[in-house]
Amino acid sequence: MTTIKEGFIEVTGGKVWYQKHESEKNTTPVIVLHGGPGSSHYSLQGLKVLSENRTVILYDQLGCGNSDRPSDKSLWNLERFVEELEQIKEALSLEEFHILGHSWGTTLAAAYYLKKPDGVKSIIFSSPCLSAPLWAEDQEENRKLLPVEVQQTLKKCEENGTTDSEEYKEATKIFNQHFVCRLDPIPEFLKKGQQYRNPEVYNTMWGPSEFHVTGNLKDFDCTSELKNIQVPTLYTCGRYDEATPKSTEYFSSLTPNGKFHVFEKSAHMPYIEETNEFLQVVNKFLLEVGENH
């Protein structure tokens, strides 16, 4: 049996919403860091079934989902999100915990651990973005795999500053079908998640699209520090992921206790594209990491 508790936690800039799926087992909890920046826990809510083995904590970062949406743009920076995670840890009295970060959530997981490693027992980097420059390079390569007219539209809109036009959005959709979620049609469930996003957070920190990085994260790169991660780590990605298998494997090779797994039928959302295998791989890793101190 799992008991569900939810509520709000006061953090720098406002209140964030969290949901705790409490397991009866006395094992180390896992906290899930969603992507974006500015998406929400919505697409990752299926991970609550991990609570068969341990307590699972989901939360919406400030600015999106069920959390407050302040209009102060100065809040949208990596340091504040690291501070927010620390405030959540304190509020929920988490002495020890595993972190599962997805996409931008891996940026946050790495930045948090490298600043505040105490209590973190392991990290799962799901479709990692640990170097924005390398990510941008990878997307240049990925774009070359798209139909020529789509490539031309993207380039033209970026050069003309018309990245908010319909044609750019349509061309981006085609990129997403290749490298973000390959399910066709896109599940209705995912479409509903759009309303929980905050494009302002995304644009401020990242840019107009997954592959055109112009925001304040554009120079983020922690590859030189991955050797300092002393806890077990699991790096996963999809075979067709925008977080490419090549880069993901490279990151894992730099981490002393790094493991690497590719989901063969997925792009950037293996937790939805290959749910059962994703849950199996994550569960197995967390059980192996176990309660060793």
Results as ranks from 00 to 15, higher is better:
residue 95 E to L: 06
residue 167 E to K: 07
residue 278 F to D: 13
residue 233 T to Y: 04
residue 184 D to W: 09
residue 31 I to E: 00
residue 87 Q to H: 07
residue 201 V to I: 15
residue 291 E to L: 13
residue 196 Y to Q: 09
residue 197 R to V: 02
residue 131 S to H: 09
residue 164 D to L: 09
residue 204 T to W: 03
residue 6 E to F: 11
residue 55 T to P: 01
residue 9 I to Q: 04
residue 123 I to C: 10
residue 97 F to S: 09
residue 140 E to K: 14
residue 221 D to A: 00
residue 94 L to T: 11
residue 257 N to A: 12
residue 254 L to F: 13
residue 116 K to R: 12
residue 2 T to C: 04
residue 216 N to S: 11
residue 156 K to Q: 15
residue 4 I to K: 13
residue 145 L to G: 12
residue 274 E to C: 07
residue 68 D to A: 03
residue 13 G to I: 09
residue 35 G to C: 04
residue 224 S to N: 10
residue 12 T to P: 05
residue 194 Q to P: 00
residue 115 K to W: 05
residue 202 Y to G: 01
residue 87 Q to A: 11
residue 32 V to C: 04
residue 255 T to G: 01
residue 89 K to H: 06
residue 66 N to S: 00
residue 18 Y to D: 06
residue 28 T to P: 08
residue 193 G to H: 01
residue 244 T to Q: 08
residue 271 Y to H: 15
residue 1 M to S: 15
residue 124 I to F: 07
residue 183 L to Q: 07
residue 257 N to M: 13
residue 280 Q to C: 11
residue 172 T to V: 14
residue 9 I to K: 06
residue 70 P to S: 06
residue 262 V to G: 01
residue 41 H to N: 08
residue 43 S to P: 06
residue 59 Y to I: 03
residue 269 M to T: 14
residue 48 K to R: 11
residue 3 T to L: 14
residue 164 D to Q: 14
residue 251 F to C: 05
residue 96 E to Q: 15
residue 128 P to M: 10
residue 16 V to M: 09
residue 167 E to S: 07
residue 9 I to M: 06
residue 146 L to I: 13
residue 128 P to A: 13
residue 242 E to I: 11
residue 258 G to E: 02
residue 254 L to D: 12
residue 206 W to I: 10
residue 212 H to C: 10
residue 67 S to H: 08
residue 269 M to Y: 08
residue 102 H to A: 03
residue 122 S to H: 09
residue 96 E to H: 15
residue 138 D to K: 04
residue 7 G to A: 05
residue 230 Q to I: 10
residue 77 N to A: 03
residue 293 H to D: 15
residue 83 E to D: 07
residue 252 S to E: 00
residue 161 G to Q: 08
residue 87 Q to D: 09
residue 14 G to I: 02
residue 116 K to Y: 11
residue 109 A to N: 08
residue 240 Y to T: 04
residue 13 G to L: 08
residue 39 S to T: 13
residue 137 E to Y: 12
residue 282 V to K: 13
residue 114 L to K: 05
residue 169 K to S: 12
residue 2 T to F: 00
residue 23 S to K: 10
residue 19 Q to L: 03
residue 192 K to E: 13
residue 118 D to W: 02
